[in-house]
Simulated assay, not measured.
Amino acid sequence: MAFKAELFREKMKACGVSQKQLAEKTPFDVRSISRWANGHQVPKLASILKLAEALGCSPRDFDPDFADSMEGVIVSGRVSAASHNAYAAMKLVFNVSQTQILELAPILFATVAARALQIPGDDDAFFAVHECEARNRGIRIERTGHPDESDGLNLDREAANNHKCFGLEPENGSSAISRNLFWEALRRMVGQADDRVSIDMWQQDWPGHVPDADGFNPHVPLLDLVAEGDPEIIRRLVRGEVRLSTSIDKAEIANKGALGQLAELIRKDLAEQAAAHRAMLEAQRRASQARLDQWRQGYELENPEWAQEYEDLAAALCHPAGWYPAHYSDKKIEEARANPFAEARFIDRARYPGRFALFGHEPEPVYPCTKGGVERFKELQAHRAASKSAFEGGSQ
């Protein structure tokens, strides 16, 4: 270990923290901190961790050899708010720390990833058995009803052969229906978990995507208890829009008793957090709408023909206002709705010439649009975006 008193003093000075203030933030008294700062004594490893946490820095800032002096190696990183809620839930239910969960993380990931790579082969074997049984009974069955599904299965097999545990996204122009194998493995495992965990709100199943914890319910009975079955609070917990750890701290679970006795305190705080979040989004929406109305007034005066052309093309080419892609999470949709100034509009790809909606074997034509119209719409979008940037720059 190579604790450097002078580096410790420099870090305290840089943070603007006195010895007395540091003592108030840590379990240590001023005398101990003074001895460490003056080099009269070397703090223990656990003490170095607490000092670094209080100063918001790495222990290596005043102990360059810190990582090498411990049995383990320090791992740091940021996780989503949803993941942070999952850590808090696991601590309550299983009495495990974040460090213990992190220690197991590579084991759990490798297990799920290995299971994911087995899925295409397992599915092929399952179908082969049932196809053989059906054939013996004189029944003809087909695994896929459309070429896109067959192409997707080939992509899944390719992903498994190349250790792409999150699956392969179809190339541009391809409509193959492939899968996120990691998500599929989790879905099957969750189905065997006796309703204790849930991915019902985990909308991250598109191939090639590395999922996070947004939408994952780590312990259904616990969240039902603390939210008293309120679906909005549960949704905000699994989306990371409210903080379970904050509510737990306020309820002082560790000092006052069992979770069941304090659930009402936690529910009240979660409801207050949810209400505050809704109010914040509504305030953002009103401010954004006011900016949009003010900008439109000037833009339509300066570019009346372009403004009308944009509206006409949006009506002809796009999904209705307020429509969002299926891969948008509830959280992302909320944030988009709180920002009308962005004018999020999405082109309806089904309206391209030569595209058909298939029902059985009979093609049903859908509303066509020209490639030139789409390109013109994108030009108008870019022009409006540049005008908005100039507007916001001038209003600051």
Rank of each mutant, 00 (worst) to 15 (best):
S47C: 03
E228W: 07
P27G: 01
A176I: 14
N136W: 01
W202Q: 09
D124K: 09
Q273A: 02
A342Y: 01
H130I: 13
F346Q: 00
A176E: 08
A88D: 01
A159C: 11
K25I: 01
N136G: 09
A89S: 10
A81S: 10
L168F: 02
F127Q: 08
E311K: 13
Q381T: 09
E10P: 00
A159R: 06
E184F: 05
Q273V: 04
L92H: 01
G257K: 04
V93S: 05
K378F: 14
S288I: 07
Q381M: 13
I33T: 01
W306T: 12
C369V: 14
R60V: 14
N85W: 07
F127N: 08
A82E: 11
R267F: 11
R291V: 10
Y328P: 00
F356N: 02
C369L: 06
G393L: 10
H277S: 07
Q396C: 09
D148C: 07
W183K: 02
W323T: 13
P43Y: 09
C165M: 12
R35Y: 06
N162R: 13
H219N: 14
N154M: 11
I234L: 12
E311D: 15
V374T: 13
A251C: 03
L225C: 13
E184S: 09
A193H: 11
L270P: 06
A350G: 03
A193G: 01
R196V: 13
L155V: 12
S18I: 08
D269N: 09
L92K: 02
R115K: 14
F28N: 00
P27D: 05
A67N: 15
Q203N: 15
F166K: 00
E362W: 02
G173Y: 03
F216E: 03
Q204R: 09
K44L: 07
S34R: 10
R285F: 01
E149L: 13
R188E: 15
G152H: 10
C15Y: 01
A160Y: 07
L292G: 06
M12T: 09
R349M: 07
R243V: 05
P231G: 11
L237T: 12
F127E: 05
D224A: 11
Q21V: 04
S47H: 08
L22A: 00
A254K: 07
M189S: 05
L244S: 08
Q289W: 06
G173I: 12
S174P: 10
L301A: 15
L270W: 07
R140F: 04
A82M: 07
K4W: 03
Y352R: 06
L225K: 12
R137N: 10
K268E: 12
V220G: 04
R140G: 02
G173R: 05
P363E: 01
R296A: 14
F8A: 03
T26W: 01
G257I: 07
L155K: 13
V96A: 02
V238E: 06
S329G: 11
T99S: 14
N255H: 06
G77W: 04
F66P: 08
G257T: 04
V190D: 02
R349L: 04
G56N: 08
W295Y: 10
S288A: 06
S32D: 07
Y367D: 09
A86D: 05
M12D: 04
R188N: 13
V17F: 00
G191A: 10
Y324M: 02
Y310C: 06
R157Q: 14
L380N: 13
Y324V: 03
P170N: 06
L223T: 15
G240I: 10
